[in-house]
Simulated assay, not measured.
Amino acid sequence: MKKNTMKSISYIYNILVFGSFFIWGFSVQSEEGLVYPAEHKFLLTIFLILMFIGMVLAGVNLSSVKEKGDAITRKTWITGIIMAFIFIIFKVVSSVK
């Protein structure tokens, strides 16, 4: 896959996922402006999985910048997946106190 194609796919995917998450959150909020996670566990899990895929795509896009050539290699995909996992681990560790 070419880098420009992957870049376009990554941007469009992330815009659609985050945009649909905010639209969904706005539509299910209560009168006080709160969203209760216990009532929407399944949809929140789906959004978390979709956002993880978006992080992998963003990581692949970022790691392909320093790669020579016009194609995205297997090494670039592995680097993108590792970057997403490191980000998630960092956020989990920083939130546990």
Rank of each mutant, 00 (worst) to 15 (best):
V56S: 06
G59R: 11
F22H: 03
F26P: 00
L44F: 12
I23F: 14
L50G: 04
S64F: 02
W24T: 03
L34W: 12
W77C: 08
S30L: 02
D70C: 01
L43H: 07
I89A: 15
V60W: 04
F26C: 04
W77V: 14
A84T: 04
G59D: 10
I82V: 14
S63C: 08
L50A: 14
I49M: 07
I49K: 00
S27K: 14
F22L: 15
G59M: 08
M51Y: 00
V28C: 12
K66Y: 08
L43Y: 11
H40W: 13
L62I: 13
K41L: 14
A38N: 15
I53L: 13
S27H: 06
W77G: 02
S63I: 06
I72E: 01
S27C: 11
Y36E: 15
T45M: 13
I82R: 04
G59K: 09
F26E: 07
S20R: 07
I82N: 02
S30W: 03
A58L: 14
L43G: 05
F26K: 11
S20Y: 14
R74L: 12
F21M: 12
G33S: 08
F22V: 12
V28P: 07
V28R: 08
S30C: 02
I89Q: 03
T76R: 00
T45I: 13
L48S: 15
V28G: 11
G33Q: 06
L48F: 12
T79L: 09
E39C: 05
R74T: 09
I82T: 08
A38E: 15
M51T: 13
P37A: 13
G33E: 05
G25V: 06
N61C: 10
S64L: 03
I82H: 00
A71V: 11
I53N: 03
A84V: 02
F85N: 01
W77D: 02
L34S: 10
W77Q: 05
T45R: 08
R74W: 09
S64M: 08
M55L: 15
N61I: 01
F47N: 02
K41D: 05
G19Y: 07
W77A: 09
G25S: 15
K68F: 06
S20I: 12
T76P: 00
M51W: 01
F42Y: 05
I78G: 01
Y36F: 15
H40C: 01
V28E: 10
M51K: 04
T45Q: 08
T79I: 06
G25Y: 14
H40T: 07
E31C: 02
K66M: 07
L50R: 04
M51S: 15
V65S: 03
V56R: 05
G80D: 01
A38P: 00
I72C: 01
I89C: 04
E31V: 12
A84Y: 01
P37H: 11
I72D: 02
W24N: 04
K41R: 14
M83F: 04
W24L: 10
M83G: 08
F87C: 07
I88K: 05
T73W: 00
I81K: 00
T45H: 05
A71L: 13
M51F: 06
T76S: 11
L57N: 05
A84W: 00
I88C: 09
I78Q: 03
L48H: 12
V28F: 11
I53H: 04
I49V: 15
Y36R: 12
H40D: 01
R74I: 10
T45V: 11
G59F: 07
K41A: 13
F52N: 05
I88L: 14
V35P: 00
T76C: 09
